[in-house]
């Protein structure tokens, strides 16, 4: 069952510009992480997705993008799973 998850994470991580990716479940527990992503951040990513859902509970889950000068973090909830992708934008 985890094969699909592992393959998806590998595919994402092998895309150009992406330095890491992580998936968390509804409770913020880590389902998988690849590349430059630490499994510890699963909880905080789920918490960010939950916090943003409070803005417009009736709207479909938005894409959340956090950015600094060199890195970008994209977070989206898809059903019970929250995914985060880390990108290097300094190139």
């Amino acid at each position: 069952m985890e094969k699909n998850l592992e393959k998806t994470l590998d595919d994402i991580n092998n895309t150009e510009g992406i330095i890491g990716c992580i998936l968390a479940d509804h409770a913020g527990l880590c389902l998988g992480a690849k590349g430059n992503a630490s499994t510890d951040s699963a909880g905080i990513i789920a918490a960010i997705a939950d916090q943003v859902t409070k803005l417009e509970p009736k709207s479909p889950p938005p894409v959340i993008s956090l950015q600094n000068d060199s890195r970008k973090c994209l977070i989206q909830r898809q059903g019970a799973v929250v995914g985060a992708i880390y990108k290097d934008i300094s190139m």
Partner: peptide, 16 residues
């Protein structure tokens, strides 16, 4: 957020 992917305490300055 993630000390491994975002070292040096580089805080985010833009959120969308």
């Amino acid at each position: 957020i993630d000390p491994k992917a975002f070292p040096n305490n580089e805080a985010f300055d833009k959120i969308s």
